[in-house]
Design a binder for these strands. Structure first.
Lengths: 138, 138
DNA sequence: CTACCTGCAAAAGGTTTGCATAGCC
DNA sequence: GGCTATGCAAACCTTTTGCAGGTAG
């Protein structure tokens, strides 16, 4: 792989942010210190780096793709209320993916699971009677 | 709801096709018999009908949204090889969604599960030694 | 009659690509 | 020096929207 300053910056930006930044986030962050970097270059490098396995592209339905510096196998949960993306540890889905394979023949990809739903803090913000709100177990 | 010929045709087209057609699929199908129908109208009606709960919009990462005439709760599996979308019965995911809620506090939406992976027929097409190919259990 | 719907075409949002120039090895 | 990356802008693809005219109730 050929070195370029921009590629290194893109990689470092994704790796150092746990927020699953979009291409546009990365672009905005880098623009601050690298005023000439172009959006095209950011996209090219994000795709290059995820093809090379150094980062991961997280496909988000109905929104911009996001990029993830964590390359160990894990899955994602998208809160359809606030738009945040959360990680889901692989072992929480392992049994499920085995069951799906056995029962349907469908073989889940590594990082192939996207859950749409409502995250803890969005659920807590809703004014439901406290008794019906299940507390998450961390 | 106000009647229109186009709306009825769109609804009927989605309901009668198990292929989870995209807006463009619906448009192409209807164009054959309704040469003046416009893509904008197809989109407007698909959105209207899914807002009204008569069909469902299936958000597909990295590809056009698809529409589903089956409105009972179920989930989807996208084959990242052939691009087909398959239904996944809700009861196969029920236990999993309970577990996720308890362990992470994330509350899955109805129809909120998208599995990316490889479908049975794509797996069978690959030239692996037969012994390593797990047969699906239907 | 009025509200809502249509067809058309333009706009919008996200992503990719062509081209000439610049930078790594 | 050659190959690849960059910046810029235009192109692309899917979806939405504004508008003027048409249709259901």
């Amino acid at each position: 792989m050929k070195y370029s300053r921009q590629r290194e910056l893109v990689l470092e930006t994704v790796r150092s942010r746990p927020i699953h930044p979009t291409a546009d986030d990365v672009f905005a962050i880098l623009r601050k210190t690298e005023p000439n970097i172009s959006l095209g270059t950011v996209y090219r490098n994000l795709n290059f780096l995820s093809d090379a396995g150094l980062i991961r592209k997280v496909l988000v339905p109905n929104a911009s793709d996001r990029f993830d510096g964590t390359v160990v196998e894990h899955h994602h949960m998208l809160c359809t209320q606030c738009g945040e993306v959360f990680d889901l540890a692989h072992d929480l889905a392992e049994e499920f993916s085995q069951e799906i394979l056995l029962k349907t023949g469908f073989e889940m990809n590594h990082c192939g699971l996207m859950l749409l739903g409502k995250c803890v803090s969005c659920r807590e913000k809703e004014c439901r009677p406290a008794s019906t709100v299940k507390q998450p177990i961390e």
